[in-house]
Nucleic acid binder design. Structure first.
Length: 300
DNA sequence: GATGCCGGGGA
DNA sequence: TCCCCGGCATC
């Protein structure tokens, strides 16, 4: 619950103006909205060895002590953790150190690949970006160049580490070769530059983690089930879950008759894809906007 | 006029 | 189900 609020606080007035991609990195490193310092610049392959794990959340990270490069190839559990380093943030000039997972009931933000049939979950955005770049976009993995397109293909998920580790412990801790089917990556023979993945959010987490404690955030949630899914796009102002959807269904159920003009949702103040990207970059719009539906990326 | 998006329809 | 668009409300 706190998590939602925290993200809901991300209401930088200039976010819309900057574009949400910029907001992504900005918000993660921002001292006002970011929960913890974790922007794209500091997560490129943690070069420093992990400190001794000394907290509950850290236990879960024992699952992986590998580098990003390795974890992209070893994913028997689909959940690979790292970065147990306690985060710090500045609050009012003071540096406040805290472990996010402690603050948020052991919630850990992971990054999940939304590519069709790909259920890869990494713990760093750089990792998932590299994964998307190399595996799905077919780009040079060594290059750090990113035009930001990867942002469209992954989403944050929040995983309750306590329960997750519990769930993982229930899994047979045996050889990775027997732990479930390997993720299937789509064979990309098509032009990925335009073939946006159909983000079937079929809560793959339920297969390997307690889904009830996972909140999935995605930019492309329009096609996805809205229950349990918070369409929190990165770095933009958000409201608690599903408000738009709930209100919509609510109005539909309360009045089955054709809604009059009074029921129309007032236009939100947030800039939507159309405004942000413009007509000329329509391919950058979220699916909903392209279909002239309620924007799912910049919700109000 | 520009924008957001509901409702409807075609493939 | 996906996608597009007419048309209306709102800004």
């Amino acid at each position: 619950m706190g998590v939602i609020c925290l993200f809901g606080v991300m209401q930088g007035a200039d976010l819309a103006g900057k574009g949400w991609k910029e907001s992504l990195s900005a918000s993660y490193s921002s001292s006002t909205s970011g929960n913890w310092s974790w922007d794209a610049s500091d997560q490129s392959v943690p070069s420093t060895p992990s400190p001794p794990l000394s907290n509950d959340a850290g236990k879960s990270f024992l699952l992986s002590s590998q580098s990003d490069d390795n974890i992209e190839e070893t994913e028997s559990t689909h959940f690979l953790f790292e970065d147990p380093i306690p985060r710090k943030r500045k609050v009012g000039g003071q540096v406040v150190a805290y472990e996010k997972t402690d603050l948020l009931n052991s919630m850990k933000v992971m990054f999940k690949c939304l590519w069709k049939n790909c259920e890869k979950v990494l713990s760093t955005s750089s990792g998932i970006q590299r994964h998307i770049r190399t595996v799905h976009l077919g780009r040079n993995g060594d290059s750090d160049y990113s035009d930001g397109e990867e942002d469209f293909y992954y989403s944050e998920i929040e995983v309750n580490m306590d329960t997750l580790s519990e769930g993982l412990s229930n899994l047979t801790p045996t050889s990775p070769t027997t732990s479930g089917p390997a993720p299937v990556f789509p064979v990309l023979t098509c032009d990925v530059s335009r073939s946006e993945p159909t983000h079937m959010i079929h809560t793959p987490l339920s297969q390997s983690a307690p889904s009830a404690l996972c909140h999935i955030r995605t930019d492309h949630a329009y096609q996805g089930p809205m229950t349990q899914i918070r369409t929190v796009s990165i770095g933009e102002k958000r409201q608690p879950v599903n408000h738009t959807t709930v209100s919509k269904t609510h109005t539909n159920t309360t009045s089955t008759s054709k809604p009059t003009t009074g029921t129309r949702k007032p236009r939100g103040e947030a800039k939507k894809c159309r405004k942000v990207y413009g007509m000329e970059k329509r391919d950058l719009w979220c699916t909903a906007c392209r279909w002239k539906k309620a924007c799912q990326r910049f919700t109000d």
